[in-house]
């Protein structure tokens, strides 16, 4: 069975009517202009900084061209930090998508207390990343963390587990925390998209004998394609730029096990005052984030055309 779609009427525009896309750009133009004005200068300036050897407080800047980029890319910390960043962003994205979509599907059904549940669901989203990190740090604390207490009471563990002893585990906990924080937003986005899925399609598929899984795969999911794109980009962006949990929970450690690109850039710029190199790290991140966004858009566009 192939995906079912409704026939789409051709859009007809009356003479003299402003094209919809132009109208859309017109509506967002003021906000876009303010955003560009506030960010364009620092964006350009920081790129200029990345081409210099700049130490905060130094009287002179030394032009180094792309040397900062070369230094960053050849630094032994770069590859592991990049890999960790990619894995972290991937984990956050996957979990956010899965949890967000799962909750949205649950909340899409009519049941008693649905509105209350929707309200409660927003709570994690309302937490700042700082609060989130502190909360997760407390839950997973190896000495007095409630998780260890609970597991021990139920006989799952004999001794308290030092969750933060292993960099991979810490990364997992941080990814889980961030996804937990983002999932409500994803849920809301998916929920609003789900409510636009025509019931007729499901009914027709039901008549054709399609089960719930097939209906989900062939009707619901294709309908959510754009929402998936938005959630993917939001989650990946948050994953790439994660900072507060590292700052509060690990300081990039143990060793350098949780040193992601964002933390590395911060340490280089804020602590060690090597602004040129720090700017280069963040520009490398910018390129990566842009590439991933482009890739995601392209992949979703392809699947839509297929």
């Amino acid at each position: 069975m192939s995906a079912i779609s409704l026939p789409r009427p051709r859009s007809r525009r009356r003479r003299g009517e402003v094209p919809e896309s132009v109208f859309g750009y017109g509506l967002v133009a003021p906000a876009l202009l303010v955003t560009l004005a506030l960010l364009a200068y620092p964006l350009g300036y920081s790129f200029w900084v990345s081409l210099h050897d700049v130490t905060l407080g130094a009287a002179h800047w030394r032009w180094v061209g792309l040397d900062n980029y070369r230094d960053v890319l050849s630094d032994p910390l770069f590859k592991p930090a990049l890999l960790r960043t990619l894995l972290f962003a991937f984990a956050v994205t996957v979990v956010t998508l899965a949890v967000g979509l799962g909750f949205a599907l649950l909340l899409d059904d009519d049941f008693r207390g649905r509105n209350l549940l929707r309200g409660i669901l927003i709570i994690p989203w309302s937490l700042s990343q700082v609060m989130l990190a502190l909360t997760f740090g407390w839950i997973f604390n190896s000495t007095y963390g409630p998780l260890n207490g609970l597991l021990k009471q139920f006989g799952v563990i004999d001794e308290y587990v030092a969750w933060f002893a292993d960099g991979k585990v810490v990364m997992g906990i941080m990814a889980l925390g961030l996804a937990w924080n983002l999932a409500p937003l994803a849920t809301l986005l998916f929920l609003s998209a789900l409510q636009t899925v025509p019931r007729e399609l499901h009914k027709a598929a039901l008549v054709d004998g399609a089960g719930p899984l097939r209906r989900f795969a062939l009707i619901t999911l294709p309908w959510l394609r754009e929402t998936v794109l938005i959630v993917t980009i939001l989650a990946a962006l948050n994953g790439f730029l994660v900072f507060a949990p590292i700052y509060i929970l690990t300081g990039g450690g143990p060793g350098t096990d949780t040193t992601l690109l964002s933390w590395w850039g911060y340490e280089t710029g804020f602590r060690n005052l090597h602004l040129g190199e720090s700017a280069a790290i963040f520009y490398v991140m910018t390129v990566l984030v842009g590439a991933i966004a482009l890739l995601t858009t392209w992949a979703l566009g392809r699947s839509k055309d297929a």
Partner: peptide, 8 residues
């Protein structure tokens, strides 16, 4: 724009 936010 967002990714270069920290350094900006």
């Amino acid at each position: 724009l967002f990714a270069t936010g920290p350094i900006a």
